[in-house]
């Protein structure tokens, strides 16, 4: 039989150790000082907060490679609308679970960054008051045109339409994407390049095969012709 109340005192000892320990060890602190701290600086001050667009929060443990907030549209060059990757195929619109994407397809085609004639979205709206950041649009996109942004300061005083992001707000350059998600962007670019080379190799192989076939056919024909000649002789 232990002394009544000894359990409580044991618990108090733990609380006391945590209280004193929190002055010396950060992991004893029940509160987490978040993202915008710089390593080793406590307490954090507002100067650490990212000011410029695209500037990353410095602590990599909290804003990570895969962090996602709302989608953005990628473009490759300096002129956003001329090099937009989206071809308005509307797959993302149809697979969006909360149905927050609205796309209107252009009527005529326009050259994209690789010089191919493509459709482009005349309207591309995302209602971020409905979007739930699930990233399914990114996964279904066959053109790598839509990816997740990690920008989170989107509050607006306008309830009607203030949170409806239009094409201009959504378009971001591939460089910006590299800045916010370096690893993911690099992997994606590598995959696109690989697919391109594979496609070209396949095309080349197909062309070669066709050439060979044609040659073989021509060869067979000449051979047959020779035989005929021989028979005739």
């Amino acid at each position: 039989m232990t002394l009544l109340g000894s359990g409580i005192f044991k618990g108090m000892a733990v609380t006391f150790r945590n209280f004193v320990g929190s002055y010396f060890h950060r992991e004893r602190l029940p509160t987490n000082d978040y993202s915008w701290r710089t390593e080793g600086s406590l307490p954090q001050h507002a100067g650490d907060y990212p000011k410029e667009e695209g500037e990353q929060l410095r602590d990599t443990t909290t804003v990570t490679n895969y962090s996602r907030n709302f989608p953005m549209l990628l473009h490759d060059g300096s002129e956003p609308m001329d090099t937009i990757r989206c071809v308005a195929c509307q797959i993302c619109e149809r697979s969006c679970p909360p149905q927050c994407i609205y796309i209107e397809k252009s009527t005529e085609k326009k050259e994209d960054s690789s010089g191919k004639m493509q459709f482009y979205p005349a309207t591309f709206d995302i209602d971020v008051s409905v979007c739930m950041s699930c990233q399914i649009c990114v996964e279904v996109c066959p053109f790598d045109a839509i990816v997740m942004n990690s920008q989170f300061e989107l509050s607006t005083p306008n309830r009607f339409g203030g949170l409806l992001l239009h094409q201009g707000d959504l378009l971001k350059s591939n460089d910006y994407y590299h800045k916010i998600h370096p690893e993911e962007a690099a992997a994606r670019d590598k995959r696109i390049a690989d697919e391109k080379t594979a496609k070209e190799a396949k095309k080349k192989a197909a062309a070669e095969a066709a050439k060979k076939k044609a040659e073989a056919k021509a060869g067979a024909e000449t051979e047959a012709g020779d035989e005929k000649k021989e028979v005739a002789e």
Binding site: L29, P30, N32, Y66, S67, C134
Partner: peptide, 28 residues
């Protein structure tokens, strides 16, 4: 007190989830 100690530890695992999936709670 006990809840905050628990949440302190939970936070570490939540950070792991975020690093892997991009979200802390709605991992998908």
């Amino acid at each position: 007190t006990p809840l905050l100690y628990a949440f302190r530890e939970r936070e570490k695992i939540m950070d792991l989830f975020e690093q892997a999936s991009g979200a802390r709670m709605m991992c998908n």
